[in-house]
Simulated scan of single mutants.
Amino acid sequence: MLLPGETLAHYQALRQAIFADIAPRSAIEWLLAVDIAELSWEIQRYRVLRHKVLETYRQKAIEAALRSIDMVGIARGFEDEAEYYTLQNALSWRIDAAAATEIDTRLANYGFDQHAINTEVYVQAREMFVLFEGLLNAAQTKRMLLLREIRNARLAPGPAGLRR
């Protein structure tokens, strides 16, 4: 199943490359190769999604840094309006390169360099990051086991082996 933003052509190209590399020799090897292709697609998907999560949390980290600068000394009754502008500035940072440069410079002047922002990103995204790392590790482990299964079956002597 493809998610929005994924293309059938990319999936089929990955699948064909895997089939060409594995060169299945039996029905069982074909089934294993299909599973390997599916797992490989999932691994690519998880990497893209993890990257998108980090982008989203980067905007949240920018919001937090801007809030710590811009919300200081705001008079009572103006907090909601100031918060609104802080969120708008963080959104501008994400979609407007000129605004991003200006905001990055302003943040740096207050001691928020890219390392500080990256730290905040990972702190905020840690649960999602751990989730994707777990998904990636599980899929990679399954894929390696399937590849080993094909290799071991090809190396096995006699009728139990998948060699032909």
Rank of each mutant, 00 (worst) to 15 (best):
L162A: 10
Y84A: 01
A61P: 10
R25N: 00
W93I: 02
M71W: 06
I43S: 07
A125Q: 05
R163H: 11
Y122G: 01
A23Y: 08
E120C: 01
L131V: 02
A116M: 03
I103F: 07
V123K: 12
R164G: 12
Q44L: 12
V130A: 14
S40W: 05
R151D: 10
H10A: 15
I36G: 01
Y122L: 08
F112D: 05
R45Q: 10
S26D: 11
M128I: 11
F19D: 00
S26E: 08
Q140R: 15
R126Y: 12
G158M: 07
R163W: 10
E120W: 00
L2M: 07
Y84T: 00
T101N: 12
K142D: 13
L91S: 00
G77Q: 02
L135E: 12
Q12I: 09
W41V: 01
E29F: 07
E63N: 02
L31R: 14
F112T: 06
R164E: 07
I43G: 08
R67Q: 06
A65L: 09
D70I: 05
A13T: 15
L49N: 04
L155A: 13
L32H: 10
K142M: 08
I28C: 05
R58A: 07
I28D: 13
K60G: 02
A64M: 11
A23I: 08
L155P: 03
A27K: 06
T141C: 04
P4Q: 00
D96M: 05
E127L: 08
E38H: 03
T56K: 10
E102G: 00
G73L: 11
N137W: 00
V34W: 05
V34M: 07
A37G: 12
Y85L: 11
W30N: 15
V53Y: 06
L3N: 02
A13F: 13
L135T: 06
P157C: 01
F78Y: 04
L14C: 13
I69G: 12
R148V: 00
Y85T: 10
P4N: 00
S40Q: 13
R164M: 03
Y57N: 04
Y84D: 03
I103M: 06
K60F: 12
E102L: 06
A61C: 09
Q114H: 12
K52W: 00
K52Q: 05
G134R: 15
Y84P: 00
L145W: 10
R76N: 10
G5F: 09
D96G: 02
L32R: 11
A37E: 10
Q124D: 04
T56D: 04
A125W: 03
A20P: 08
G134C: 02
E133R: 03
L2A: 03
S26Y: 10
Q124F: 09
W30A: 14
D96T: 07
K142C: 08
L3W: 03
S92N: 14
